[in-house]
């Protein structure tokens, strides 16, 4: 074509530019329109949806209790939800057995939303577990890998958008809608108010935690298995703790029994459980551990009893480290027994 093409007349250019202006105008209109929206109309944003909640006679009290926790700059978003062991699954579905098998009594939930920015909201879960031990158990076994310690409380940790803590017999979760400093400030405020407003038995504590030797202890690593520790039915109320010694991670466990006879029986039971499942007894250099060390498919298991305690090492990669820790643990327990006898 090239040279043979007709010339462009002026009106044609003028009209062309007008039409391009129209397109620009349409584009602009579309762009303005796209910023005008409210996601709630699609229903997906559950934060703004008024969902049916479990209710009971006590829910009024819970309502007042939870409403008193509202952080500044936030408001409650929905009625308080209260769930008992029968309808807990309605709220947390398949996770319910984890709680109901650990003495769960009641769950109260509440959502708080920022008055300034409705995308900032958090949901509070207060699980009444009956006892401190139960609360600690569900807290410890769920502890997230990416946990960072949180605040002045002993049993509390945070993740990017959530807070988890034990307050007396209560296990508390605060889950934020997003990762935000403002939201986290508000959630921290809720936890302060929980400590101030939710009364607990001040004497209730977990004595076993003081029984683990302090050297090389990995902070926050204690877990409590109320039943079925390591798959063995006899090991109930068993605490585990991780240690980092000689670049090896070793897990120690201990359980306080009602009396030395019971401790003996449980230790024997666990030892036999290991042997029955394919463990073989192992030589040891340490005299006090003789007959208590087994090889379990390449890992070292140690189990012993002393006084009312059953204790040992679980699935250690390195036998030396395991025996070193076992010895420390045994000595520590003996100290405790002796000091108790001397009193």
């Amino acid at each position: 074509m090239g040279p043979a093409r007709r010339r462009v007349r002026r009106p044609e250019s003028a009209i062309s530019f007008c039409l391009l202006a129209v397109l620009l105008f349409i584009g602009l209109g579309v762009f303005i329109k796209q910023s005008d929206f409210e996601m709630a109309r699609f229903g997906i944003n559950v934060a703004t949806a008024e969902l049916p909640l479990g209710e009971s006679e006590e829910s009024k009290d819970d309502q007042t209790a939870l409403n008193s926790l509202v952080p500044t700059g936030f408001e409650t978003l929905s009625k308080t939800g209260v769930y008992n062991p029968e309808n807990l699954y309605e709220k947390i579905n398949g996770k319910a057995p984890l709680y109901t098998e650990s003495g769960f009594e009641k769950l109260s939930t509440q959502r708080y939303v920022s008055t300034a920015d409705e995308s900032l909201w958090a949901e509070l879960y207060v699980y009444d577990m009956g006892t401190v031990k139960n609360a600690f158990s569900v807290y410890s076994v769920q502890r997230r890998a990416e946990a960072e310690p949180f605040g002045p409380m002993r049993f509390a940790y945070r993740t990017a958008n959530a807070l988890y803590l034990v307050h007396g017999k209560y296990y508390v979760e605060l889950v934020g809608s997003t990762e935000s400093a403002e939201l986290f400030r508000a959630m921290a405020e809720v936890t302060r108010k929980i400590r101030a407003n939710l009364t607990i038995d001040p004497n209730a504590g977990i004595a076993e935690l003081a029984l683990f030797p302090e050297e090389d202890f990995v902070a926050g690593s204690v877990k409590l298995y109320l039943v079925n520790a390591f798959g063995s039915e006899g090991l109930t109320d068993t605490f585990t703790a991780r240690y980092k010694l000689d670049d090896e991670t070793v897990a120690a466990f201990l359980s306080r029994r009602s009396d030395p006879q019971d401790a003996q029986a449980v230790a024997k039971g666990y030892y036999e459980f290991l042997i029955n499942n394919g463990a073989t007894s192992k030589q040891t250099a340490k005299k006090i551990l003789e007959g208590k060390v087994v090889d379990f498919y390449g890992t070292t298991e140690i189990v012993f009893d002393t006084g009312p305690f059953v204790a040992g090492i679980h699935e250690a990669e390195n036998q030396q480290a395991a025996e070193k820790l076992a010895e420390r643990l045994l000595n520590k327990l003996r100290e405790v027994i002796n000091s108790a006898n001397n009193e």
Binding site: I44, V46, E50
Partner: peptide, 26 residues
């Protein structure tokens, strides 16, 4: 908790319902 389909229906063959209508609350 989703009513997105009705919200995008151009002719309201699926009515643009609110979540409360779908759930029968409020």
């Amino acid at each position: 908790n989703c009513v997105a389909c009705g919200q995008v229906c151009p002719t309201s063959a699926l009515r643009p319902i609110k979540l409360s209508e779908k759930l029968g609350i409020g």
